[in-house]
Design a protein around this nucleic acid. Structure first.
Lengths: 235, 235, 235, 235
DNA sequence: GATGAATGAGGATTCATTCAT
DNA sequence: TATGAATGAATCCTCATTCAT
């Protein structure tokens, strides 16, 4: 139940009649198998299957061009089945994004790097970029979903959700590194950092080997140099 | 031989066997313009019309989602007419990109800012960003065309053309500002700068008034801080 | 995997990743037929409907000029439905041809006439032509499909398939009637016979009543006279 | 003038305002150059150009699939120009057919072979087939035009015209070879012969070298054997 | 839950033909 | 005459989505 329901509840109201309360408990997934949720297990698998397929299709065709039929085909199920779990393409993307953020949090913890506020900026950026890149290499669909909107300002819901979540996390992290920056500026700086991250990511992903390393280096340079003056004590 | 002709001749060889004699003379543009042009005035206007319509549609739907039918409709012509001038959507985007770059060059000259090599970095960046932003506000379709590929590495031809042209121009400009950077690095730095530009542009375009100004400021900061260490004499 | 499935599986690999486990068993048709069939009854009917419609359209417009939309319309379904079963016009023609050959075999047996090698040539030809004509009158679409290519040598796949199958059958038949003809010649003679058949068929189909009978007579004459010298014992 | 006008007058009434009277004199073409018909010469050339282009396009795409735009393009003129000389595709085919028959007559005389009624059948067929094949190799468009109708009985006008003319010529020829056959039968036999010719022609055109020769041989065999019993004196 | 059939509007593109210049 | 622009219906095919089973 949970996952299937979660999918629909998280963003769309179409599937309202689902137990929304046990979401917290659902988080402790590892033991979920024990409860008498036989048929749900199947649904869970289906959803995973579909999301995997969607990730694959989004990566190979881009989000806009991806078709629900293609996703169903890739997942080896019928279109009808797909729509049993997701009301539309957008919902798939949203759930995919949710899970990505979930995994990011699971893997790297709340922050994208060492939480010790004493960590020097350079080190913090280094860690964050490395993790970010690493994460993207393992989940290339992240790029497809994050990929800026075709039209400035008009983001798909899925994109927006991811974007917002990421901003929050980055802002939290930045707040600890740039304690002296006023809130209004911090939000803007956060947006800028995310933009730089994404721009750098694209360059990194389109290169390989030594070149890729070099671009990772540049991305770190960009961020460090941009943030250093903001972090540095006026001393 | 102006643009109208350029469209058809530069991309399609369909009418290759036409007016074979004056081809040589046609190369010396001044005269060639007169003869087989007369009727093209109408076509010329249509092409402009179509490109304008395309710009509008690309802006409001994004390149991927834009349809040739929509463009024709927006231009107030039948689908067939569109195809008399452009073999497909891509060709429209390419021509649009060509004209944009043409205008950029016309308006701002070869470089995006003061050519004097003695210009301090800060000032050069300031000028370049201001022009770039200004240009984009007057031609919002530029963003739609430049907007990174849906799939990393898989760019549309049109995008690629624009991208390449811009890189060249930026690299030229950077070369004069960063004379000591080795060529291999310069190319990478150029890519990075373009990425930063585009990332900043998106943020600028999605904000207005004071916020927009603030983002412009940040973009300049990013670039200046990134480039400063590369430009600074080791002294 | 009845016909419906046959259509999709035999030509398109689109649904390849489906039911992977019972593939082995599916080969032993008896059981495979039962399970995933239920809902396909509808599809089965649709396919028959579509093929019937296609036959009708091919007959009235010719294969080349027939449009998939026209076929769908004739079948009373939407274009999308047609494409659920056939990837394109060609596939429809191919399936139609397959079924025609299937029926021909079912109805007249492997040979187009008496198999007894002692049957005199005249009698064999008589039987073969009668059956061939009869078959074509009951399935006029056969002509539309068999109708030679618009461009010599450039046959549509569907045509080619039919053609090849027919050649095989005729050659087998001829081999028993002309035991002394070398293989290389036999192939050529087979091609010629099929050509004569088709030429005669066209004439037969464009006439009626007594005239038609007369043309049937002529076709038999042509074949008998052509083949007689090849069959006659040198004695 | 002549040709241009002829084109339109012969089948369509659309272009009525042309001097139809000089058609007879126009037949004596060789001297036509002398009259003060300057501008007509241009039209003549255009027509030849267009017909040549049409022949080429018909051959490479087949009559049905050929488009007037493609013909105009191949001829290096605009679509409008094509329609200045021919009211539609059909008219082009008809004129092309007319000229083919004209040339056939010019080249081989009224009959397709020796006119001497004493010529033995075998020799007459031999000559006729050789000429027919030869003609078709030099004018491959003939096949495209003659190529049986997509739908039995529903011939295009152009096809029909060619067909009829050919039948007449063949019947004339046959009449001299088969003097004892009643008229009703002769018409049918003529149709059959043309059918055999065409069937053989297709086989010949789709093979090359020795194989082609072998098929020519077979075609002759078919015709000779078919006709021999009709020609032979019962003695 | 699962299936696959069904939809029909919309996508890109072509074509025979007409018209203004 | 000749051009090339214009048309709009028709082509094939796809897609997100719904529905009966």
């Amino acid at each position: 139940m949970r996952a299937g329901a979660r999918v629909c509840q998280s963003r769309s109201e179409t599937w309202g009649s689902r137990v929304p309360e046990n979401t917290e408990k659902a988080e402790s997934e590892p033991k979920a198998d024990t409860r008498p949720r036989r048929r749900q297990a199947r649904g869970e698998r289906r959803i995973a299957q579909l999301l995997e397929a969607a990730a694959s299709v989004f990566c190979s065709s881009g989000y806009t061009a991806a078709s629900t039929n293609a996703i169903a085909r890739e997942a080896g199920v019928s279109p009808g089945t797909l729509y049993q779990f997701f009301p539309n393409k957008e919902a798939i993307a949203i759930e995919l994004g949710d899970r990505l953020m979930h995994e990011m949090r699971e893997t790297y913890g709340e922050a994208l790097g060492p939480v010790d506020p004493a960590t020097p900026l350079e080190e913090a950026v280094e860690a964050a970029v490395d993790r970010f890149i690493d994460f993207n290499c393992r989940h290339p669909v992240f790029f497809a979903l994050m990929h800026g909107p075709d039209i400035p300002g008009r983001m798909a819901e899925a994109h927006e959700a991811l974007h917002t979540t990421l901003l929050e996390r980055i802002q939290t992290r930045l707040a600890s590194v740039l304690p002296d920056v006023p809130a209004a500026d911090l939000a803007r700086i956060t947006e800028v950092c995310l933009g730089l991250y994404m721009a750098g990511l694209e360059l990194v992903l389109t290169h390989e080997g030594a070149e890729r390393e070099a671009y990772v280096r540049e991305l770190k340079n960009v961020l460090v140099r941009y943030l250093a003056p903001l972090a540095a004590p006026p001393a």
